[in-house]
Design a protein around this nucleic acid. Sequence first.
DNA 1: AAAGGATATTGACAAGTATCGATATGCTAA
DNA 2: TTAGCATATCGATACTTGTCAATATCCTTT
Lengths: 117, 117
Amino acid sequence: MATRTVKSTKSKLETKVCCGTARDIPLSERDAAELASVFAALSDPVRLRLLSIISSAPDGEVCACDLVTPTGKSQPTVSHHLKILFEAGLVEREKRGVWVWYRAVSERLDSLASRLH
Amino acid sequence: MATRTVKSTKSKLETKVCCGTARDIPLSERDAAELASVFAALSDPVRLRLLSIISSAPDGEVCACDLVTPTGKSQPTVSHHLKILFEAGLVEREKRGVWVWYRAVSERLDSLASRLH
DNA sequence: AAAGGATATTGACAAGTATCGATATGCTAA
DNA sequence: TTAGCATATCGATACTTGTCAATATCCTTT
């Protein structure tokens, strides 16, 4: 933390004094951790593409078996990424027989978008 | 990839057949990587709080020296996080004398928000 | 009941990252 | 020019994460 007093005033450089008292941070530590975890779920290219496929599906849902080939990743890897998206609340899943269908949770993305301001 | 033929129709479970041909992914590999890198910059609680402080500053800018104490992190750590925010295009910086002032790049957040749909 | 397939989990490993102490750089004032 | 401070970089370390092969689980069909 620098000094707070500025003596000379010869240029614009000194017109503003830095290093005031620490103000309250608008975003709490808890909220920051929560937000960060959602962004972390979105911080992988494979997951973004999975979400993209799911979101743009005609019926709004996609079978997990259709998510392996397009991404070029192994089945366990895709399953792992889908789990992360699910736990972040970005997708929901429904098991029907042997298949699992995924849908995007648009409200989750909407509320996230609104928090970017 | 599962079989595509479904013979019996005894319940709703079989009304939809999964595992069609791989369709094009709306989000390209390059775009996904770019987007993911921005989300990665936002996926840390300390960086979100830094951005929060900067964004809500009365003058729209904050001296780096005012960003160490509130976060409770060391000066090198804060400098590291600011660099990541800067390289992601989320903040811009201006050196004035010994001090460095940071401002949020709101258009960057806006365009990011618009891409969440 | 047995076989086969879809999905999830486990274990292991390589790569990436957050953190801090020490140090370098660069600006200002004396 | 020297001293002192603000900021950035470096080096090291502990932790996290993306990936896949192997395996487990669960459902359906025969």
